[in-house]
Amino acid sequence: MSIVVGVSFMVGTYLIMARSLLSVVIGLNMLAHGSHLLLLTMAGLKTGAPPLLDRPETAFSDPLPQALILTAIVISFGITAFTIAIAYRTYKVYQTDDLEQLRGSPDE
């Protein structure tokens, strides 16, 4: 698991260094997924029954990390959608998705 986290951080970091707007968005998304996975890994992976009433088992798994990750995924889903929309509009307005050309001069 920690290797997967490392790889997705690596890929994400590489992608946000790229010049294309879309790869930045995908890179940020990769990083977000990496951090969600990290949350799950750090919380400790234990096998156990779902923590519900009316279950015969005695060992339950910790529901909190799952809840946290679900929330974080929902948030990153919303933000990714918004980022794509912004990136798309930026591309439409400037007719380029190259970040070098989007730098803008300091005084305009």
Partner: peptide, 13 residues
Amino acid sequence: ASALVIIVTIAGD
């Protein structure tokens, strides 16, 4: 609704 709004808006452009 929000998933639909997002996708339909971007795709409908």
